[in-house]
Design a protein around this nucleic acid. Structure first.
Lengths: 345, 345
DNA sequence: GTCCAGCATGTTAGCGCTAACAAAGGTGGT
DNA sequence: ACCACCTTTGTTAGCGCTAACATGCTGGAC
């Protein structure tokens, strides 16, 4: 791919003075061209650029990082990238970062505690990253984060914490409200909630939004169950729920904390002879690509995960430019499909 | 998290000579301790380590990279991390890399061509990464890769290409064979295949495995359809297939190239009144976490994606240690669930 | 006791780059 | 014609670290 007029691959890596020699200038002039400094004569600039192209020269990032103190790298601390949402956010982040000339270094936390947030931040600082983005909704991580005071900007994405400075979040409360209002609008007396695990800040905020929306509408409080985001937990809750419905309890609407739990729930209800949306309406959260192909197709609240990542980078750049950046929020929206319908009595 | 007996956060970043001064030794001795060199007196070593701990010193990675030419970073070029498999592989890679003391820098290709493989490799080389791992099954990327000759080890993961040097792959042919044999064993006359897109090397290898398995068993050749990995393409094929079945065609077994297409296919068949596995048996590929909760639960071929990532790092380390490493393969296995059954006539 | 091996530690140079300063050349106002 | 000033280019120093070499010391062989 690289133009190489000499015909041979350079054994020794090229350095700035190789380019300088070829262009007949000093290495400093090459540096000025590479970094786009203004005071270079157009003809000189052109000659240097040609030498760079002919040689296929690339500046050494380590040397540059050493002298400038900046590596043009953003460190991303994330978790659960095997889930659709976090993966999408990472994609959004990487692309926005690259567009701004930064590369992305990634540390993946695991619940087993192989790496703590503080360690990850520490590693990134030693790596001279220019900023750290933390993408997690874990309460524990959030608490740990408050202890950390890195010498570089730190931006939190999808965490609902207070006192954390720069943060981008999805409007979880608004999303929950959308789901609840939709179900109440269909005539359901109340809405029950299958929430994500208690260590998740997102889950907590959805619970809060759900409670608030019910209260605001004057509906009876619903029941709360906790899952772990995965289909199996939805399945377990669904099995128990079906038993209670057959025993005569009135449960007609469930708002699940994510699509995967909604899936498990619907399958369990179906296995037990409860129909969706005939007997029970179900709303999910996320809008994973499979959601339209569940049986029935899932009504859900879409989060724009990639946008979250892009906004995260925007905040990073703002902080790097010395601005405050403040905090930002991405708004979710409701997609009505086949898993919700009016109450049948 | 860091011990800080001075009580104040250091404004100026700590350098090696700060530690040296505190421990009463030269900066070189500190360097020796940090790098675990043998010829340091135990008492001196201890004193230095204590100074490091007290000060919270971390060596500057850029300076080290500059002088050693190694950044202890592995560059990962990947694609489709929003799919379960690639995301899992990335997790496996990151954890294995971190365990070996390397950090991971990530570049995400997109089909829109925002970044080419050659550019990504180039960027990583300029970043002084110690090795590059490419994780993609795109034919185009594979071809581009053959043009690239980076000055660092390059390991390909999940690409079935030849002439690419060090490679880790999942045994796609073996996986396809498992699926076909299972279906033939249930009495199906032949097996049709809903494959992934033609730019995918994995898809091609599964097609090859499927053809071979049918031929080896003496079964009639099946029909081939191409999808794009996503549920919607499976749905389109399923709709057409149902029409033909109702028109009297004999189609009783389909092997789908991944679980998501199998999902779309099953939903379409169901919508058209064709039962699974009563009328048609379906086998998927991947074993995504949702697969047991499809209707019916999906029989599928599990790939151990995380293992793929770990093996990739093993090969990188072998190459870095000067060994050949050769190539490696991870074997898939069949999980029989509810979407396959005997033929009904 | 002498000598040299071998260990512990210090000193120096330099990785490739950018920042700061220095020098040379050109321009325009008077 | 002269000087002030700006533009262009070059020279030098140093970022924080490791490698290579230098030094001083201890201890066993003879």
């Amino acid at each position: 791919m690289s133009t190489d007029t000499t015909g041979t691959a350079p054994a020794r890596p090229l350095v700035m003075s190789d380019v300088a020699a070829r262009a007949g200038v000093s290495h400093q002039t090459v540096s000025r061209v590479v970094n786009g400094h203004p005071n270079v004569a157009p003809r000189t600039r052109e000659r240097v650029q040609q030498a760079i192209a002919e040689l296929g020269y690339r500046p050494n990032a380590a040397a540059r990082a050493l002298v400038t103190g900046s590596s043009r790298t953003i460190g991303l601390i994330t978790i659960d990238v095997d889930q659709y949402g976090p993966a999408q956010t990472m994609i959004g982040l990487e692309q926005a970062a690259r567009a701004a000339g930064y590369s992305l270094s990634v540390a993946i936390l695991d619940r087993a505690g192989g790496l703590t947030i503080a360690e990850a931040v520490d590693r990134f600082v030693a790596q001279s990253v220019d900023a750290v983005v933390v993408h997690t909704a874990e309460l524990q991580a959030l608490e740990a984060l408050e202890q950390v005071d890195p010498p570089v900007p730190l931006v939190a994405v999808q965490m609902g914490g207070e006192g954390l400075g720069t943060t981008v979040t999805v409007g979880q409360e608004a999303g929950a409200q959308l789901a609840v209002d939709h179900l109440l609008g269909l005539g359901h007396a109340t809405v029950h909630h299958l929430a994500g695990p208690s260590y998740s800040v997102e889950a907590r905020r959805r619970i809060h939004g759900w409670r608030t929306a019910l209260a605001r509408a004057g509906a009876a409080p619903g029941e709360l169950w906790l899952g772990d985001w995965w289909p199996s937990s939805g399945h377990a809750v669904g099995t128990e729920l079906a038993r209670r419905i057959r025993a005569g309890e009135q449960v007609t609407a469930v708002f699940a904390g994510n699509d995967q739990m909604a899936l498990g729930l619907m399958v369990a209800l179906h296995e037990q002879g409860i129909t969706v949306p005939g007997d029970v309406s179900v709303v999910g959260f996320d809008d994973v690509p499979e959601a339209p192909y569940f049986s029935p197709p899932l009504t859900t609240v879409r989060q724009d995960f990639a946008e979250l990542g892009r906004r995260g980078v925007e905040l990073v750049l703002a902080r790097l430019a010395g601005e405050d950046g403040g905090s930002d929020q991405v708004e979710p929206r409701l997609l009505v499909r086949g898993s919700t319908g009016p109450v049948h009595d």
